[in-house]
Deep mutational scan, measured.
Amino acid sequence: HHGSGALAALHADGPHAGLPVTRSDARVLIFNDWEERKRSEPWLRLDMSDKAIFRRYPHLR
């Protein structure tokens, strides 16, 4: 199991509170979210491209 239990660094406060600090933090969040959702949506594709990251977390651009 590759990303399970990996912890992402999140901004503690300010405008980005609760959001990932780096792209690799964002990838951890996206992976964990996908892993949760694919139980009920097995067709869901995992997209951890930069484009997917920016779409979801525009502050990382």
Rank of each mutant, 00 (worst) to 15 (best):
H1V: 12
H1A: 10
H1Y: 13
H2Q: 11
H2T: 12
H2K: 13
H2R: 12
H2E: 10
G3L: 14
G3H: 11
G3M: 14
G3K: 12
G3T: 12
G3Q: 15
G3P: 10
S4L: 12
S4A: 11
S4G: 10
S4I: 14
S4D: 12
S4E: 11
S4M: 13
G5R: 15
G5N: 10
G5P: 13
A6M: 14
A6D: 09
A6I: 15
A6C: 15
A6S: 13
A6H: 12
L7Y: 10
L7N: 09
L7S: 14
L7H: 10
L7W: 07
A8L: 07
A8N: 04
A8I: 09
A9I: 13
A9K: 14
L10V: 09
L10E: 03
L10Q: 14
H11P: 03
H11I: 07
H11E: 05
A12R: 10
A12T: 12
A12E: 11
A12V: 12
A12K: 13
A12N: 09
A12G: 07
A12Q: 12
D13M: 08
D13W: 10
D13E: 09
D13K: 15
D13C: 12
G14P: 05
G14D: 03
G14K: 03
G14I: 05
G14E: 03
G14R: 04
P15I: 07
P15C: 06
P15V: 08
H16M: 09
H16I: 09
H16G: 03
H16L: 14
H16E: 05
H16V: 04
H16A: 05
H16F: 14
A17I: 11
A17Q: 10
A17G: 04
A17R: 13
A17W: 05
G18I: 03
G18P: 03
G18F: 04
G18T: 03
G18Y: 04
G18N: 05
L19I: 02
L19Y: 04
L19H: 03
L19P: 02
L19S: 02
L19W: 04
P20D: 00
P20K: 01
P20C: 03
P20H: 01
P20A: 01
V21P: 02
V21N: 04
V21Y: 05
V21A: 12
T22N: 06
T22Q: 05
T22Y: 03
T22S: 09
T22K: 06
R23Y: 15
R23L: 15
R23F: 12
R23M: 15
R23K: 15
R23G: 04
R23P: 12
S24D: 13
S24I: 09
S24L: 09
S24E: 14
S24F: 14
S24K: 13
S24M: 14
S24G: 15
S24T: 09
D25A: 06
D25E: 07
D25K: 15
D25T: 01
D25Q: 05
D25L: 02
A26G: 02
A26I: 01
A26R: 15
A26H: 00
R27H: 03
R27E: 07
R27S: 04
R27C: 11
R27N: 01
R27P: 00
V28H: 06
V28I: 15
V28C: 11
V28R: 11
V28M: 09
V28E: 04
V28P: 00
V28W: 09
V28N: 05
V28G: 04
L29E: 03
L29P: 00
L29W: 02
I30D: 00
I30Y: 01
I30T: 01
I30V: 05
I30M: 08
I30Q: 01
I30F: 13
I30R: 15
I30N: 01
F31H: 06
F31N: 02
F31V: 04
F31W: 08
N32I: 12
N32M: 13
N32T: 09
N32D: 09
N32Q: 13
N32R: 14
N32L: 14
D33R: 08
D33E: 14
D33K: 05
D33S: 06
D33A: 09
D33I: 13
W34Q: 00
W34D: 14
W34M: 01
W34L: 01
E35G: 05
E35R: 14
E36W: 08
E36S: 13
E36Y: 13
E36C: 12
E36K: 11
R37V: 02
R37H: 06
R37Y: 15
R37E: 02
R37Q: 12
R37P: 00
R37S: 05
R37A: 07
R37T: 03
K38I: 13
K38P: 14
K38T: 08
K38C: 12
K38F: 08
K38G: 04
K38A: 13
R39V: 11
R39T: 10
R39W: 09
R39C: 13
R39N: 11
R39L: 14
S40F: 10
S40T: 14
S40N: 14
E41Q: 08
E41V: 06
P42N: 04
P42Y: 05
P42V: 04
P42C: 07
P42I: 04
P42L: 04
P42A: 05
W43Y: 08
W43L: 09
W43S: 08
W43H: 10
W43N: 13
W43T: 08
W43E: 11
W43C: 11
W43M: 08
L44H: 06
L44V: 07
L44Q: 08
L44T: 06
L44E: 09
L44I: 07
R45E: 12
R45T: 10
R45C: 14
R45L: 14
R45W: 06
R45Y: 06
R45I: 13
R45M: 09
L46H: 02
L46P: 03
L46E: 01
L46Y: 15
L46W: 01
D47T: 02
D47V: 03
M48T: 10
M48A: 04
M48N: 03
M48F: 07
M48H: 09
M48E: 02
S49Q: 02
S49N: 02
S49H: 02
S49L: 02
S49Y: 01
D50N: 11
D50Q: 05
D50E: 08
D50I: 11
K51N: 12
K51Q: 11
K51H: 09
K51D: 14
K51L: 10
K51T: 11
A52E: 15
A52T: 15
A52L: 05
A52V: 07
A52R: 02
A52D: 07
I53W: 01
I53D: 00
I53F: 02
I53V: 13
I53P: 00
I53M: 04
I53R: 01
I53E: 00
F54Y: 12
F54S: 05
F54C: 06
F54E: 07
F54D: 13
F54W: 07
F54I: 08
R55V: 09
R55H: 10
R55A: 13
R55G: 09
R55D: 13
R55K: 11
R56E: 08
R56P: 00
R56N: 05
R56F: 05
R56H: 12
R56I: 10
R56G: 01
Y57H: 00
Y57C: 01
Y57F: 14
Y57L: 04
Y57W: 15
Y57A: 00
P58R: 02
P58W: 02
P58A: 03
P58H: 02
P58L: 02
P58Q: 02
P58K: 02
H59M: 01
H59N: 02
H59V: 00
H59I: 00
H59R: 01
H59P: 00
L60V: 00
L60W: 00
L60T: 00
L60D: 00
L60Y: 00
L60H: 00
L60A: 00
L60M: 02
R61P: 05
R61G: 07
R61M: 12
R61I: 11
R61D: 08
R61Y: 10
R61E: 07
R61T: 07
